[in-house]
Amino acid sequence: MKLEMKDSPGQLVAALTPISEYGGNIIAVIHQREPESPSDTLGVQIVLEIAQERLDALVGAIKLQGVSILRLGEERLLYRQSVIMIGHLIHTDIGDTIGRIDATGFAEVAELNVHMPAIAEPSTALITIKATTRSEMGRALDVLRTVAAEKGLLIVEPLAGAEA
């Protein structure tokens, strides 16, 4: 989001405080004086992640601090993670496997690359999931683990902190 605030002490802190209060996570703060902006205001861009349902409340809280929000760019499904699945993927209804992730509402299958070596042999797939936040990615992977356990599929996950 891009904010405009008075160029006076305490203004930036006032704008940032509500973010942590509403459980948001600040990824970057870009602070620059733009030539066209009036000299008594300051433009600040903030990149953050927050659960969708708390965004409106956060916007309200920032406005209450006397800070105006010039632009609110939203990118849903910020996180991507790829997982390898091995087993009888097609015969255990791959449509259902994908559907169970998509049905969560906060994550979806963005890509699927399936290799089928021979009939009756296990297939291998790279499945890429997109999710809104890191914790929702975790929940999406939990769904996938449950589905895999039901269908006897092997899942090979990236090592946490070492995602490509």
Partner: peptide, 14 residues
Amino acid sequence: GLTVDALRLAADQD
């Protein structure tokens, strides 16, 4: 239970 394809798919992503 690992397949050669699994290693290939991983290799595609370095």
